[in-house]
Design a binder for these strands. Structure first.
Lengths: 255, 255
DNA sequence: GCTGCCGCCCGTACAGTGTAAGCGTACAGC
DNA sequence: GCTGTACGCTTACACTGTACGGGCGGCAGC
């Protein structure tokens, strides 16, 4: 966790926030209650109890304040959620700069994809937030990793339109795998097949068999399986795109 | 009071489903209000105004009934949403049976992926529902397309564990692409950059350029670009898997 | 006919949501 | 001292899901 709050004191969520106005009589304000503290509390709540638990009143309680007091630091709830996305993306673990060789760049691309995956899996609910707001939540913290990913694809030899396409493909894959996996997880812990109708045992044999394999597999290896596939394809595509020797970056858009 | 629905609201309403108490001479009950009608109204509401608009009261109004009356046909709201997923998946457009050749099977696989994509894009909110409930919503209507997809992969020559993996990869891609695209769409129609801070013009040049390409591209072609990539990879994987003397262990086949 | 009965629908009520409006108070500058 | 301002609190309103109880209509038995 790159941007982990060093304070880390709490260990207790809900009520631990003390009055705090007893502290120093100095010029300091009384227990700041900054926007950042609010956002951090919201992130914690989201990670621990899901997006539905992120409620103005719950967040307020977590920072020791009434709900309406939050509105002095966030415009409304959407603004708070934008702050949550921003805060999470500010923790994006950028990999170390790559070398110039094709293998280095491929490895770097893999590392960037892993960083995305790690970030999203650490806070699965942000996927829902990203899907919900789509384009409106475009903070610098969110765009920087996108920029790096696109830059990497260009460096691997893709033309601008191909880089955009490749980013969309890989991004979709990363996003979707997080959706599928965390959906699975939350359902697994959710209470042991509550709804009732278990699947009939003999219909859907393929599904039954596949489920056992999916459960047995390591999700990370499964993810790499698909990722390697795409990176390999990108390298061939790049090679084709670079055909006219030095001339990088022009045309060759449509295959 | 209860006997006079003619005076009843009817004013604005959602869309005034149907009169329900026409004629009334026959032996018929008074417009059954079956679970199916409720689910259909919920789907319509979800498609037109988003998942947040699916409210017991709103659904009730759409079928001409008070909210509490719905509870005689659905256990609770989650049950209703399960019904929504079920109803949508029952509309899955199964492609025609394939021939036995490898090309036919590949084309069939493509068609199945397209059917998934079409179904999800027609009702984008079900992605959120699937992600939220994950495993608990496993009706026959949902599992049948999964079974077909797995069956197709097996037919293409994949071993059971490879078929499971490939399904996960392609499924993630389909899911993710729908998330990205519909997120984009809903944001585009959502009100013209409401939040405020537009991105600084010169930072993130790659992002800016990529956005223009992504907007210009046809989403379906972009989707096919990634899909073909995966199907091609599957065919090689299948060929390798079916060849006994060639050891499958090359780095990404079996791990 | 009448009398129960029972499935369906409604009205009311309660806890919880986001947030608009106004009040109280502690500190800054004078 | 006084005053303006920033911040937190209280109250209030329109919503949400749903527990509870009551009423109305069509049925079986007689």
């Amino acid at each position: 966790m790159g941007a982990a709050p060093s304070v880390n004191l709490a260990s207790e969520t809900e009520m631990t926030e003390d009055p705090t106005h007893t502290a120093a009589g100095g010029p300091g304000a009384r227990a700041p209650l900054t926007r950042e503290r609010i956002v951090e509390a919201a992130v914690r709540l989201m990670d621990e109890e899901g997006l539905a638990a992120v409620t103005m009143r719950r967040v307020g309680r977590a920072v020791g304040v009434e709900a309406m007091s939050l509105y002095h630091h966030v415009r409304d709830k959407d603004d708070l959620l934008d702050g949550v996305v921003d805060h999470v993306m500010r923790g994006f673990p950028f990999p170390a700069e790559p070398g110039p060789s094709s293998e280095d760049l491929a490895a770097y691309g893999r590392a960037v994809a892993h960083a995305w995956r790690r970030t999203l899996r650490a806070h699965p609910a942000v996927v829902e937030l990203l899907a919900r707001r789509g384009r409106s939540a475009r903070s610098a913290a969110l765009l920087r990793p996108v920029e790096v990913a696109l830059w990497t694809l260009r460096r691997m030899g893709l033309s601008p339109p191909d880089a955009a396409r490749a980013f969309h493909v890989i991004g979709s894959y990363v996003m979707g795998s997080v959706v599928l996996e965390t959906g699975r997880i939350s359902a697994a812990e959710g209470g042991g097949g509550a709804t009732g109708h278990d699947l009939p045992p003999d219909a859907f044999p393929q599904v039954l068999e596949a489920l056992s394999y999916l459960d047995a597999d390591d999700p990370d290896e499964r993810f790499d399986f698909g990722l390697d596939l795409m990176i390999e394809a990108i390298r061939t595509l790049a090679g084709r795109s670079r055909e006219p020797e030095r001339d990088v970056g022009t045309s060759n858009a449509t295959r």
